[in-house]
Design a protein around this nucleic acid. Sequence first.
RNA 1: GGCGACGUGGCCAAGUGGCAAGGCAAGGGUCUGCAAAACCCUCAUCAUGGGUUCAAAUCCCAUCGUCGCCUCCA
Length: 466
Amino acid sequence: MSIKLYSTLSRRKEDFETIEPGKVRMYVCGVTVYHKAHIGHAMFALVFDVIRRYLEYRGYAVRHVMNFTDVDDKIINRANQLGVNPFELAEGYIREFQQNLADLNVLPATINPRATQEIDLIIKMIEGLIEKGFAYPLDSDVYFRVDKDPDYGKLSGRRLDDMQAGARIDVDNRKENPMDFALWKASKPGEPAWDSPWGQGRPGWHIECSAMNLNHLGEQIDIHGGGNDLIFPHHENEIAQTESLTGKQFARYWVHNGMLQLSGEKMSKSLGNLVSIDDFLAKHKADSLRFLILNSGYRNPLSYSDEIVEQADRAIERLQSGLRPAEAAAAGASTQDLEDLQKQMVATRTGFEQSMDDDFNSAGALGYLFELVRVINQAHAEGATAAQLAPAQDLLKELTGVLGLQLENSRAGDQAVEPFIQLLIDLRLELRAQKLYQLSDLIRNRLLDMGVILEDGKGGTSWRFK
RNA sequence: GGCGACGUGGCCAAGUGGCAAGGCAAGGGUCUGCAAAACCCUCAUCAUGGGUUCAAAUCCCAUCGUCGCCUCCA
């Protein structure tokens, strides 16, 4: 069975076929680095991380490119406000975002190109577009001529006639068509600038992505992704530029994720309603955020609230419960239990793959993983040994890993405390044997306050970090 | 005004023609000194109104509601 994925261009699910067999060229629009990254940015990164991981699970070699826009008006404005060098400002946020992604267990992209590293190619492309009549210089700017592009609007499903140019911004009367967009922008004194045939300036927002695609993936790519707020104008313009220049179809599949919303509104820098990735990770595990995103369709909007984060925290604990070690004194599960476990393993992998093949239906896939957890726990409760649980637990680890979940219980760097915890457990065991329950409960409660949970089972007391 | 998406139990959410996955919460039970975890049981006819069909949450029409894009935006 093949993978199906929804493409914004055709507005339907399509069979996934790559240009080169077994290889995927995937470009994902990254961020403009002028501000701390928020969990909305994390969403796109997580969505495409899961897509990439699943494609690799399916045997594809994925060349994953995610760019950084490191020069633009917003960066310059903010640098001016802060009185710092715009390049240094961008560099700092790039480092921070990469650290955020690492903290979220997002695999590093194959390449992270930056707009400022592509200037030569950008200029060549603009020259090519001018030669072909798709662009025209105006003073020291260069604009793309939308009227020359017959299928302009095909991605976003708009026609030029329908668009109320200037409805919310002032029309630049110098342009041939109000919808013409900048390929090259003249710079003001003191702003970052590069030499060009049209004078000192910098690239427009859209052309950089076209250039990075061309440079790192080629004229034609398999998947082009990003948030659905980029469909228009950014991706529309990218198609227009690239296809006008090459005369070939640019991306086979356009994949867009829905927006993360906070209190009913899109989370965005301009609205000021954001939760930074750092804020989130200070209170919750990376797995929790990933679960939130996996648990709903990637194309749907996702409403963020304390309540659903709390639910995600619990759900992760539930998945972790499937990985608990067998009781030391386990007697072994019955043949029937082991058969059930075996059946569920087959059902889980099959269901997982069928769900994920269907446009990366991770919520459906999670359903099968929870069912596996239940059957593992049943066997666990029936006395399965470590060896009996291992195959199912390995499967659980493997498939949650495909989704990028870590399910780690222990906190890094805390190994040193383990002997002391064990000492307290042994002490408490003695107190309980003497029925000194007040003291034994005191130990349990105090450890809980410190984030260590004790659980008394048949085979002794086990513990885990909260 | 134009384009588009969505509306499934208290909450999140899958399912897009054939008896409504899963998670969280809640209630009951087993286990336990107690607790926690785990296990067992209970918990929805799918916004509303029409229509098509042997059969609809799933297709069509209408209504109501929520949201996104059209401007920088993941």
